[in-house]
Design a protein around this nucleic acid. Sequence first.
RNA 1: GGGCCGGUAGCUCAGCGGUAGAGCACCUGACUUUUAAUCAGAGGGUCGAGGGUUCGAUCCCCUCCCGGCUCACCA
Length: 490
Amino acid sequence: MELTNLQAQRLTKLQRLRDGGVDPFPARSRRTHTIAVVLDSFEQLSEAATRLTLAGRIVGARRIMGKLAFAHITDGTERIQLWMSLADAGEALFARFRDDIDTFDIIEVDGLLRRTKKGEPSLFVQDLRVLAKTLNPPPEKWEGLQDVEERLRQRYLDLTVNEDRRQIFRMRAQAITAMRHFLDQRGFVEVETPVLQPIYGGAAARPFTTHHHQLDQTLYMRIASELYLKRLIVGGFDAVYEIGKNFRNEGVDRSHNTEFTVMECYQAYADYHDMMQLVEQMFRAISQAVIGETRVLYQGQPIDFGVDWPRMPLVQAIEERTGIDILALPDLTSLMQAIGAAGLQVEPKPTWGKQVDELFSTYVQPMLVQPTFIIDYPVELSPLAKRKPDVPALTERFEGFIAGLELANAFTELNDPLDQEQRFLEQGRAYDSGDDEAHQMDTDFLNALMYGMPPTGGLGVGIDRLVMILTDQSTIREVILFPHLRTRDT
RNA sequence: GGGCCGGUAGCUCAGCGGUAGAGCACCUGACUUUUAAUCAGAGGGUCGAGGGUUCGAUCCCCUCCCGGCUCACCA
């Protein structure tokens, strides 16, 4: 490893510690208190003159003034000031702190709690040990680490320097905990289904392909949990959910990461209306748990989870925004003519369903700021959803939108194996005609349906996007600890 | 994938044909109540990579690598 000047300087200090009989990486800490606890009961602890041991990373600059020194340490709970005097600490200890300890080193300090003259709660250091010597220098103390690429590639460094980013990931954990709690309380059973699948399905997407050597078998990384979870409904679990990663071999942007976390849940004897209520209640509960209220500010816009979400039929939403009644234009040719006649600027798509989706994405979705359910999607776009009994061209499906982002997707699940087979066959024709996101025929899934699946409501929620809303982040990679980046050559 | 912008010291950034700069950090010295400590001094760079133009390239041109924004695709 080639060292920079600053790394070499620190290595010299490390060697000097070793030469002085000090292990720069001891196995254990003797910490007695966290900094948060110490600050909480500072007055009692300082009056009692309790000698205690704190541990943490030196952050900010050390301020060394000849015979007196100050620094701050943080242990992940809080930060506290240390101060040390040459007279009390002794020449050897003071010199070690001055000469061999650097900003960012992780140390352990013994001493008494006292306020300084300026009134800051501090630890008056009587002894000090290195817990981990650092070889890399910290970023600039005031500007910190700004470069987006470096922040993402060295997320560990980003997290040490930028406390607010750690907070985002704490909130993410709280959101997932709250979601689990919500579902557990309602009798859902958490399950795990395969990530490596011989047949992929449950969404319109291109998969990652991999290979099992011993079995000499092609496997796909899952694009959705859907088809396995519905097998479990057939199997007699009346309510199941899974929280896990999906993988889609598609583009990356501010709202898409290659791998992303989804909660999918299925409830027997429920329909998509029930799932809408579930979403409303769940988002309310999660918001309450994570930020303490049901209103959040997202990118300057207030979002209110305290009220029920409007239900807007897709057909009506498109007509209101574009004047086009898609049901009256049931084939691609007439739809394209109407789009042309209306002077709408949209990308031409290969199928009627995709063209409808395009109209929606362009003219409706960006307007959906407050939580909104768009309901009743064309059957072409929803090969796993049950048809509306009175309008067989549409399905009982909804998607939930907030701030223009799709957060939820749900339907009354198709449980008719004969209709499902026809849908798979139609998907196969779409694939053959160039739609590389079309579903594969899954005969085992059909076999499961032939044993009977009760009427079932199913729901998927994008966890990353939910966390974006709750933490007011404009890009998905800020709520994913290690978002995927191209590897660096040099 | 297209368009636009960027990559210069550990970090944050100037410079844009004529010997490579600042702030912070680091190092040396002074300093017993600092809070982005202060004062004085010193060191630190294959200017993303490769090619080209030029007497001379961090700077202009070409190719490539890595990012950001944006459009397209997808959740």
